[in-house]
Design a binder for these strands. Structure first.
Length: 914
DNA sequence: CTAGGGTTAG
């Protein structure tokens, strides 16, 4: 259905006039039209992402379509469905607002939370998160500015992970379209709910300037951050002064806009003292330190509340010196302001100074209260000064706060940090009144001592939970690699109406990263955006990690660029993300740019080179690292050793081993295993055995490394014995890789029966499904033992596509056992799988040659030539003074090859004589 | 009857 809505004529004229008064133009589209566009029957129960209908608005230049978000009381963010940025800090009015290619839409909040209709744009900015709330007094509805995604030609083109993740979050549909096709992301839309939408177009109409928006945003935001009582207070005040302000906690967190705040100032001569204090507090909560200070300076009179608001506000943003200065000037130094000082120091990590302030306070004759004690206890915990903590207990009793709930809560934490978990439990048990913090703290006690089951039991039975309780459990499951359980809890938490906070997001995005589930990750990313936390460093890194693990390093980069205050962890995550996706150049570039590298940065870069098989680079970076003065740790060494193993560079490996001993680094499982492997790969099996023997702690990887080491160095029986020892000890279970090594060993001894026995036990005893390489081992074993038919049958019986190596092994055995007929068959099979495998051609032609079938030899050669293949010769190399020299058979490419061949002749001559 | 300081997770 096509709908032509002329934007520059007819009905919209009135709208133009209306909005012209505000300095910009909006187009008002009435519900009727919308409901016509989306008749109720047609969209009920339909699937997501379905093209609903074709809508054309306006002419080509003013054509703007958007689709809305959220549905009231549905989805994950109940009551605030579709509200982007609500309660978040990351309000940024994008500079692109003046860019003609972008247009923005204002959408009626309730309309969109009820139905899917909005108007968007042809193009949407990539940082699609900006959402200030505006209240239009004339319409008495709330609006938000929503920027989302883009689709061109009906195809969804998410231009940022933000935009796309927004779609994925499931609690609101978003966007689409170049102007002809609207794609709806909500499965059903309840009919009959009025919708109102506004949009303004940057191409044809003037926009309000940035200042206007910034001002609106700031002030709205400021109030959105205020507590309920702060807002109630402001309303109370303004109402007293005769102004009518509508405010409904149940409906919205946003009470009013800057327009009204300004009006209050203009028409009523400003706030009274209480309202001033509220405004200052709200400014600080919003992170606007400058504005908070300005308001403080400008206010006509101040009381103790104003002063302590300022002092704590400054402390919260790390402005310790300024805060102290103001504290000194403060004429009303009461308990609260002293406590604010103590806590401010503690917040900034200056625990000792906090305690000093406490002492000074006592010296000044000010009596501490319960809040003071909670702060001082925190300082002791921060300092790990448990003697001080103990002496505080006496003071608490003297001032009579031993039954105070908050003080007891702090004592529980103190006891936990002191390692006195039983004391913690006793304090908890003896409390007469417990609050949600008490329960959460005792929950944490069990989580900390690793009694997750007991913690879970407490969690299930505690009388009240808050978001910290949920976070505690979720974080722990996530840390214990139980991502599924973490997610289950997360979903449950959201369903029960709790809003995930920063720390919860951090855990849950790590969990989804470990599941490598992009859709899930984006879903959660969408929640983050809607909570306005997208720019936080704390969730940025796991988010980068998630995108990178899912192969979306570019999206990871967008997240990275978007973090407002990056730290070294963010940089490391991004570097690791790039190398995970093979983008080593980008990783290197970032590594170079990284302002301050830490040990993890170096390790990340090193393991990046390993993953991408640039082993020489590893040693290079490692020496750079030593030069820079950074001390390598266990991770560094195990990576560097594995590089040495790949290079089969015994000299380097020994050198590294020496460094490890010199630095006195403890031989953990990782280093031990890496050493075992390195020595084995470099051919020094004796040292390999020695290291393995000395390892105090061994895991399945260590055992596997040793078994493989023995098998590959011709000690197959010893390898098998070691495996049996491993099975007997049953402390560690063999893995897939262990079995590869074991079968390899069997194959080298010709132990057919043993091999089949182990192979069979894989699934039966250990529940490991055999993979291609295990079958290949068996095929190889059968073929080498001359059981060609059995080998061929095994290949055919494999439950999946056999590896090319399986065919190659068989072919090679056909050659050994002169089975021409099977060789031909096998060679063709091999070529079917891989035309580039030159070994097949060579083998077959050799078989023909030995049978005297010269015609066939030449046809195979021709075939090989026609496919542009060359025989890959065997290659040997030797390491001399840190340089690897490699040689092929009859190779004359080496710079000093004349000399080399000369020496070789002398050697040969001497060998003959001896 | 409204305004300032605090405890739990990461």
């Amino acid at each position: 259905m096509d709908l032509e809505i002329p934007i520059t004529s007819g009905k919209s004229q009135g709208s133009g006039e209306y909005f012209a008064r505000f300095g910009y133009v909006l187009v008002h589209v009435l519900t009727g039209l919308i409901m016509e566009t989306f008749p109720s029957q047609s969209h009920r129960g339909r699937l997501r992402n379905e093209t609903v209908t074709t809508v054309t608005f306006g002419d080509s230049t003013t054509r703007n379509i958007a689709i809305g978000c959220g549905r009231k009381n549905q989805g994950l963010f109940r009551g605030s469905a579709g509200l982007l940025g609500l309660g978040g800090k990351s309000l940024s009015f994008p500079s692109q607002i003046n860019s003609p290619s972008f247009s923005y839409c204002l959408v009626d909040r309730y309309a969109t939370s009820a139905s899917t209709l909005e108007f968007g744009s042809l193009a949407i900015p990539s940082d699609a998160i900006t959402v200030p709330l505006l209240r239009n007094s004339k319409m008495d509805t709330f609006y938000y500015l929503g920027l989302t995604g883009i689709s061109v030609g009906g195809q969804m083109l998410p231009i940022s992970p933000s935009a796309f993740a927004l779609d994925q979050s499931g609690d609101g549909g978003v966007i689409v379209d170049s102007g002809t096709t609207v794609t709806r992301f909500r499965p059903e839309v309840p009919p009959g709910i009025p919708s109102v939408a506004f949009l303004f177009d940057t191409k044809t109409l003037e926009l309000p300037d940035n200042n206007y928006f910034t001002k609106v945003a700031e002030n709205v935001f400021c109030l959105s951050f205020a507590t309920t009582s702060q807002r109630t207070s402001i309303i109370g005040n303004t109402q007293q002064q005769g102004m009518r302000v509508s405010f409904d906690v149940g409906r919205s967190l946003i009470g009013f806009t800057v327009v009204e705040v300004d009006k209050i100032f203009e028409e009523f001569g400003g706030f009274n003292l209480v309202a001033w204090n509220c405004m200052i507090s709200a400014k600080f909560q919003d992170g606007n330190v400058y504005e908070g200070c300005r308001l403080f300076d400008e206010m006509p009179e101040r009381n103790e509340v104003s002063w302590s608001t300022l002092v704590s506000g400054l402390m919260r943003y790390g402005k310790v010196e300024e805060s102290v200065l103001y504290f000194k000037k403060n004429p009303f130094r009461d308990v609260v302001s002293w406590t604010a000082m103590i806590n401010g120091f503690v917040k900034n990590g200056l625990n000792f100074d906090g305690l000093m302030v406490f002492r000074k306070m006592l010296n000044c004759g000010i009596s501490p209260n319960a809040v003071t004690f909670t702060s001082v206890i925190k300082a002791c915990i921060g300092l790990s000064d448990f003697d001080c903590g103990r002496s505080l207990l006496g003071l608490i009793v003297r001032y009579g706060f031993e039954h105070n709930v908050s003080v007891c809560n702090s004592i529980i934490t103190l006891s936990l940090r002191m390692g006195e978990t039983e004391v913690a439990r006793r304090v908890f048990d003896e409390m007469e009144v417990r609050d949600v913090v008490s329960w959460t703290t005792i929950l944490d006690v069990y989580v900390e001592i690793g009694e997750l089951k007991e913690a879970r039991r407490i969690f299930e039975t505690m009388p009240e939970k808050n978001e910290v309780s949920w976070s505690t459990m979720i974080a722990r499951y996530s840390q214990n690699d139980d991502a599924e359980e973490a997610l289950k809890l997360y979903n449950q938490m959201v369903l029960e109406g709790f809003k995930p906070n920063l720390s919860c997001f951090s855990s849950i995005i790590s969990a989804s990263a470990s599941l490598v589930d992009l859709k899930l990750g984006m879903n959660i990313h969408g929640h983050m955006i809607k909570s306005g936390m997208e720019r936080e460093v704390f969730i940025g890194s796991p988010l980068i990690d998630m995108y990178s693990k899912c192969g979306k390093d570019e999206d990871g980069r967008r997240v990275f660029d978007f973090i407002s205050e990056k730290n070294v962890v963010s940089w490391n995550s991004m570097i690791s993300g790039y190398s995970l996706n093979g983008q080593l150049e980008e990783a290197e570039e970032l590594f170079e740019q990284l302002p301050k590298r830490n040990i993890v940065s170096w390790n990340t870069m090193i393991s990046g080179y390993i993953q991408n098989e640039y082993c020489e680079k590893v040693l290079e970076v490692f020496s750079q690292m030593l030069l820079s003065g950074e001390n390598p740790n266990g991770f560094t060494f195990s990576s560097v050793l594995s590089a040495c193993a790949s290079l089969a560079s015994l000299e380097k490996g020994k050198d590294i081993h020496g460094k490890i001993i010199k630095l006195g680094i403890h031989y953990g499982v990782f280093i031990g295993t890496a050493l075992t492997d390195m020595y084995a790969k470099s051919g020094d099996i004796k040292s390999s055995r020695k290291v393995f023997k000395r390892m105090q702690e061994k895991n399945e990887v260590s055992w596997t490394a040793m078994i493989q080491a023995l098998a590959e160095n011709g000690f197959a029986e010893e390898a098998l014995n070691l495996f049996e020892e491993m099975e007997r000890r049953s402390a560690v279970a063999p893995t897939e890789l262990t079995f590869s090594a074991v079968l390899f060993a069997c194959s080298h001894c010709g132990f057919v029966d043993k091999a089949f026995r182990h192979f069979e036990s894989m699934e039966r005893v250990y529940g490991i499904k055999p993979k291609g390489r295990h079958y290949t081992c068996l095929v190889d074993l059968l073929a080498r033992s001359g059981c060609l038919t059995e080998a061929e049958e095994l290949i055919k019986a494999m439950p999946f596509q056999p590896e090319t190596n399986a065919w190659a092994s068989l072919l090679s055995a056909c050659s050994t056992y002169n089975n021409e007929e099977m060789a031909e068959r096998t060679a063709w099979k091999l070529w079917e799988l891989s035309t580039e495998n030159s070994a097949g051609y060579v083998l077959l032609s050799n078989i023909y040659a030995s049978a005297g079938r010269w015609k066939d030899v030449s046809s195979v050669r021709k075939l090989m030539k026609g496919r542009n293949l060359k025989k890959i010769g065997g290659c040997s190399w030797i390491e001399v003074r840190n340089q690897v020299h490699s040689f092929y058979s009859e190779d004359g490419n080496h710079l000093r090859s004349a000399e080399i061949y000369g020496i070789l002749e002398i050697l040969m001559f001497e060998m003959v004589i001896v």
